[in-house]
């Protein structure tokens, strides 16, 4: 179990580095899928198989397919035009250092903690999660439903090809 956790974690980190440094959109998306699956394996290793399954189904399955669809629809190629200056250290050094400092601060804070919990890998079944979810967390489920509805409406409005805003602009130009 421990070995699975550390290996999967390493894979997740490497795949994520591949995501943020990649230049080809489709490669980056695939890296991200690898990263997500690695995190799902981490979940399995931690003893949360329900979460891992959802990670694969919803994240890697649904959301990333959405990304792939969009990449295909826009016919994106390896486009480094916009990111060309990024290759210069002057541009990536500052943010990277910042992120490193943040990481350092987080790790330092975690090291200071004295919780000393060890994860044994006991199974938390889908049943217990579902009981919690539809028991005390019912309101959160309802709110999530509303959030998804709102996202649905927004996406279908914003993503329209003949956007009303555009039409209005065009009307104004005539």
């Amino acid at each position: 179990m421990e070995l699975a956790f550390y290996l999967s974690g390493l894979v997740a980190v490497l795949a994520t580095i591949g995501v943020i440094t990649g230049t080809s959109p489709i490669h980056a998306v695939v890296y991200l899928i690898v990263s997500l699956i690695a995190v799902a394996l981490v979940f399995f290793a931690l003893g949360a198989p329900f979460a891992g399954a959802l990670e694969i189904i919803v994240y890697a399955g649904a959301i990333m397919v959405l990304f792939v669809f969009v990449v295909m629809m826009l016919n994106l190629r390896s486009d480094t035009r916009g990111d060309q200056p990024w290759l210069h250290p002057r541009h990536w050094l500052g943010p990277s250092l910042l992120a490193l400092v943040l990481l350092g601060a987080l790790v330092a804070l975690l090291a200071q903690g004295s919780v000393d919990r060890v994860i044994e890998g006991e199974l938390l079944t889908a049943r217990s999660v579902a009981l919690t979810l539809f028991g005390p967390w019912l309101m959160v489920v309802e709110l999530s439903a509303i959030l998804l509805l709102a996202a649905l409406v927004t996406a279908s409005h914003v993503g329209r090809r003949n956007n009303p805003v555009q039409n209005r602009n065009r009307g104004g130009n005539q």
Partner: peptide, 26 residues
């Protein structure tokens, strides 16, 4: 078993990577 801190550190590393990507990419 795995110490909880290790899991959280993994989360922090992933978070920092994501953040760096957010700040770096156009």
């Amino acid at each position: 078993g795995i110490p909880m801190e290790h899991g959280l550190i993994l989360a922090s590393v992933l978070f920092s990577l994501g953040l760096a990507g957010l700040m770096l990419r156009r």
